[in-house]
Design a binder for these strands. Structure first.
Lengths: 220, 220
DNA sequence: ACCTGAACACCGTTCAAGT
DNA sequence: ACCTGAACACCGTTCAAGT
């Protein structure tokens, strides 16, 4: 009860950090990365921009807090006995959460960091790699590799979806590609054989993850 | 000579698209992603912000043009006979260019796209996968997988470096991690065994790429 | 202790006008 | 055809003052 020892003094707090973080999260959920700003947050809370800074240090700090709030909500999956299956199940849980919350990727790009609440997943993934036969150090490296691959996947897939939505149609980049493929026979053949190739989505993520795990299993 | 058929009319152009793109690139090289803005660009060119829009459609369009300018400069490596070695050499050339130009990753995160000038690399990588025994479709998928991994690597490594530079010291996220690792035995053991684990750099990228290629070679 | 208003130094983009 | 100035609707953050 250390808190009760300090008697209430000065103006009573109308806002709390939890309020600020909760509203920030709601703004992101409703309007994506662009919807979050200190000023809009203050509007939504009926306060002045500066009152936000009583409760969080900066925009960067706020982002870390919101990401952690999201991480808390990820349902912890049942863990199979087989270590490799466990890695797949754990990564799919993280993938599903991030894929369902595109704003999280946007803010991940702004401040590349994770809060304490994902540590359960990190712990279980590394442990699974160890159970699968890797040394502790190798398991850490394997975790790092799967993390890089997962972030790359989410960023690129979401980035493509965003660009398509903005220009309603294939992105500027894909148009460039189509227009300039003439000189490149393999590329042209590929575009002819699979013209609507789409490398996005959960199934493709799973397939690529399995390839990665094959490579890791083969580690010398 | 179609151009000469239109006689010069109206005010002569003081700016050109090439000028605009060149100065934008210089701003990025000197000051990173934050240094590029339409207004600063106009200042640097001695013009008003609006004159930029005569030569590029928007900020997004400008970013695509600057990235393509960078891609043009990537030296094309000598290609070994062995298809797998070829893939490694090609990806390392792309990695080296992007690792040497951190601003490119920042703008890659803003507008996820590539211009026509990287197509030579894409062509050669996909061709190498085909030469290595993959079907055309599989080769396209393999390219996409290595691209996702590469982008993830660059983003995360650079993101970590940025955050460390801003807070001069371990990032907020890493401090969270250290503080909260108590409940997680594997994590704690890993931090004790390799306290200064650094997963960044060219050697690690190469090592992970080889793991990926092992997994791809194992494709059923 | 907490909150506010005004200000600083910026953004991308649009509009109507100038040469 | 190309460029400009003024304006619109925003940013994050600092400072000094109010309750």
């Amino acid at each position: 009860m250390t808190k009760a020892q300090t008697p209430a003094r000065g103006r009573p707090a109308r806002l709390s950090r939890d309020d600020v973080v909760a509203v920030a999260k709601r703004l992101l959920e409703n309007g994506g990365g662009e919807a979050l700003s200190i000023r809009r947050l203050a509007d939504e809370l009926g306060s002045s921009p500066m009152s936000i800074y009583r409760h969080v240090e900066s925009m960067d700090h706020l982002i870390v807090l919101v990401l952690d709030e999201l991480a808390k909500e990820i349902p912890k999956p049942d863990l199979p006995d087989d270590p490799r299956e466990r890695v797949v199940v754990l990564w799919l849980a993280l993938y599903d959460c991030l894929a369902a919350n595109p704003w999280a990727q946007e803010v991940l790009a702004r401040e590349m960091s994770i809060g304490p609440s994902v540590l359960w997943f990190v712990e279980e993934i590394i442990k699974s790699f160890v159970d699968g036969g890797l040394s502790l150090k190798r398991a850490g490296q394997a975790y790092n590799l799967t993390w890089k691959f997962s972030v790359g996947t989410l960023m690129i897939d979401q980035g493509q979806t965003d660009v398509e939505a903005r220009h309603d149609g294939p992105s500027i980049a894909r148009q460039f590609m189509i227009t300039h493929a003439e000189g490149y026979p393999t590329l042209r053949a590929l575009m002819a054989e699979v013209p609507n190739a789409d490398h996005r989505g959960r199934d493709r993520y799973l397939m690529n993850l399995e390839i990665l795990l094959d490579g890791i299993a083969n580690w010398k």
